[in-house]
C-alpha cells in the first residue's frame, strides 16, 4: 500500500473580518486513497467548499490557511511556492465547479480554453493540444468533439458545459479531482449520466475523487466513504453503507431523515430545526447542540472525533447505538 493521494491534517482556514475571525474550516483531517471516492457532505456554510478550495490553494483573500498540513502524495502543499501550486493545479489536482453556466469564460471558444490548459503544463503544439482536447471531450461522451471545440460556451447546454469542464479537468489525467457540487445545476437524467461516467473514470484511471455535495442521495450511490461536515468540523465519517444505514451523529441522522423517499407518501419530511451557526466567535462545546434533541450539559465541551468501529468516526457525546434505523426512528 502506497501513501494516500491526499492526506489532510488539522486543516484550518480562516477569514478575518471586522467582527472577528471566521473559522470556515476548523481542524479537519482526512485521507483519500488512490482511486477512492470520498463524499464530502454538508449544508451551505459547513466549510465543505472551502476545504476543496484550500487544497487547491485558491482561497480568496483575505482568507488563508491558518494551520495544518495538506499532504499531496507526501508533499506538504500548504508550504509550496505559488509556482509549484500552479504546476499542480489543473495537472495533478483538478477541480470541477458547481455552476457550469459560470465556469467557462463566455468570450472564449471551447478550444481556446482547453488548449490553454494543455499548454499551461506541457510544451505541445497547438495541433497536438487540440487533438488531446477532442479526445478528452469524446471520453466524457460528447459527440462530434471537433465541432464542439469551435463553439462558444453559450452555444452549449448546461449538461454539455459541465462535460466540457469535466473534460478540461481530465486533460492531464490528474491524481485528484475535487468536484464541488458539479451536478446540482443539472437535470436529474444528466446528473445520473455524469455520476456514472465520473465513477467509471475514477475506477479506470485510479484518480482519487472528492465529491462535495449537500445531497446525501447523490453520494450514496457514488462514494466509497462519506464525510459529514458541520460548521467547519467533521461530525461523522465512515464507509458509505455504514454511515447511511447506521448514522451515529444526530446531524447525519437529520440529513438522512430529510431526504425524500425514505418515508411513506404524503408524510411530512423531517426537518432539522434551526440554522447553521454563524462561524464567528463560536461558543465552546458541540456546535450542533442548539439544534440537537439529545444535547445535555456534557455537550458544552467539544466532543472528540471518536472511532466507533474501524473507519467509522463520530464527533458526539451521545451517538446512537450501532443498530439500523427503523422507519419510525427516521421520522422522529
Amino acid at each position: 500500500m502506497t501513501a494516500p493521494t491526499l492526506k489532510v491534517e488539522n486543516l484550518e482556514t480562516h477569514f478575518p473580518t471586522r467582527d472577528g475571525i471566521v473559522r470556515a474550516v476548523d481542524g479537519v483531517s482526512f485521507e483519500v486513497a488512490q482511486g477512492e471516492i470520498l463524499g464530502l457532505v454538508g449544508e451551505s456554510g459547513s466549510g465543505k467548499s472551502i476545504t476543496g478550495f484550500s487544497i487547491l490553494g485558491l482561497i480568496d483573500a483575505p482568507g488563508h490557511i491558518a494551520g495544518g498540513k495538506i499532504l499531496f502524495k507526501g508533499e506538504d502543499i500548504t508550504r509550496a511556492s505559488p509556482q509549484r501550486m500552479r504546476q499542480l493545479r489543473g495537472a495533478r489536482i483538478a477541480m470541477i465547479f458547481q455552476d457550469p453556466m459560470m465556469t467557462l469564460n463566455p468570450v472564449l471558444r471551447i478550444d481556446t480554453q482547453m488548449i490553454e490548459t494543455v499548454q499551461a503544463h506541457e510544451k505541445v503544439s497547438d495541433v497536438a493540444a487540440r487533438a488531446r482536447a477532442a479526445e478528452a471531450l469524446r471520453a466524457v461522451g460528447i459527440a462530434a468533439p471537433e465541432e464542439r471545440l469551435l463553439s462558444y460556451p453559450h452555444q452549449l447546454s448546461g449538461g454539455m458545459r459541465q462535460r466540457v469542464a469535466i473534460a478540461t479537468a481530465l486533460l492531464h489525467k490528474p491524481d485528484l479531482i475535487i468536484a464541488d457540487e458539479p451536478t446540482t445545476a443539472l437535470d436529474v437524467t444528466i446528473q445520473g449520466q455524469i455520476l456514472y461516467e465520473m465513477r467509471k473514470l475514477c475506477r479506470d484511471t485510479g484518480t482519487a475523487l472528492i465529491w462535495i455535495t449537500h445531497d446525501l442521495s447523490v453520494v450514496a450511490g457514488l462514494a466509497d466513504r462519506i464525510m459529514v461536515m458541520y460548521a467547519g468540523r467533521i461530525v461523522e465519517t465512515g464507509p458509505v453503507a455504514t454511515v447511511i444505514e447506521r448514522p451515529q451523529h444526530p446531524y447525519t441522522r437529520g440529513l438522512i431523515g430529510s431526504v425524500p423517499g425514505a418515508l411513506p407518501r404524503g408524510k411530512r419530511l423531517f426537518q432539522i430545526p434551526g440554522m447553521t451557526p454563524a462561524l464567528i466567535n463560536l461558543p465552546p462545546g458541540c456546535r450542533f447542540k442548539n439544534r440537537c434533541s439529545r444535547a445535555d450539559a456534557l455537550c458544552d465541551t467539544m466532543p472528540e472525533l471518536a472511532e466507533l468501529s474501524p473507519g467509522h468516526g463520530v464527533r458526539c457525546h451521545h451517538p446512537y447505538d450501532a443498530k439500523p434505523l427503523t422507519p419510525s426512528e427516521t421520522a422522529a
Partner: peptide, 15 residues
C-alpha cells in the same frame, strides 16, 4: 475577477 470562470482559469493552472 470574482467570476467563477476566473477561478476556474486559475484552477486549470494558468499563470
Amino acid at each position: 475577477m470574482l467570476m467563477d470562470y476566473v477561478k476556474f482559469a486559475r484552477a486549470k493552472g494558468l499563470d
